[in-house]
Amino acid sequence: MKVRVDIRKTLRAHGREFKLDASFEAEHDSTVVFGPSGSGKSLTMQCIAGLVRPDEGRIQIGEHILFDSATGVDLRPQLRNVGFVFQDYALFPHLTVEKNIAFGLEKSLTETSGGDGAARVREFLTLFELDPLARSYPRNLSGGQRQRVAVARALIRQPDLLLLDEPLSALDPVLRGRVRRELADIQLRFKVPMLVITHDPADVEAFAENLVVFDHGRVTRVLNLRQGIEGPTALTRPQVLDQTLAELYPAGAG
């Protein structure tokens, strides 16, 4: 599913101003949003999820328009069907793993259990290897386990798009490789379009079919890596990556 983003937003805080002017199209299911800290990646994600309102522009997933300042469309986050895995995972500390995962399936104001939802939750617990932890609370989980809960919680709603804000940055380096492979597996299994924020080049290697490069609040490059690899004269992925990195961090500047 094609994701189209074309938004502008100006933030002012403590006398400083940040201008976001992001415009890109992600054609493939796996898009990596890459760039240094403070370049507007997270803000763009929050705009897509409906947590921050852009000043103007348009956001579209397939034919589904989420935001369009020209026609006054601005869907509430509840109606966007966009899954969000937050950088610190934002698991509900007062709910068990099981109830965290079930949260998005329920509508009622009080706790409920049973019904079709319960079977689905069990299925997801198994799928994400969380069975033995079903009744544990998030504070008792390791970083990798928390990450799996956060992804399961978002995916159980069958979102049209899954946003992951630096999903690996909270993990130690040893775990990072394993979780990276797990995420790639999930992508294949669920066939859900993913937008992954990162500033780790290894993530680009692992996930990117599309690469969107942010710098100073602007999208500086949009690369179609799949094409690049398939084409006869095209660069290989590492070459594209090296080139991009060289542009972002010129020699001697960092």
Binding site: A49, G50, Q78, R80, G83, A90, F92, F103, E111, A154
Partner: peptide, 22 residues
């Protein structure tokens, strides 16, 4: 943490449910 409330919103919870459950 307002992030938890935002997480509940992206999981489809109405504002009333965000208040009652989070």
């Amino acid at each position: 943490d307002t992030q938890l409330e935002n997480a509940a919103r992206t999981l489809g919870s109405s504002e009333l449910r965000v208040f009652a459950r989070v």
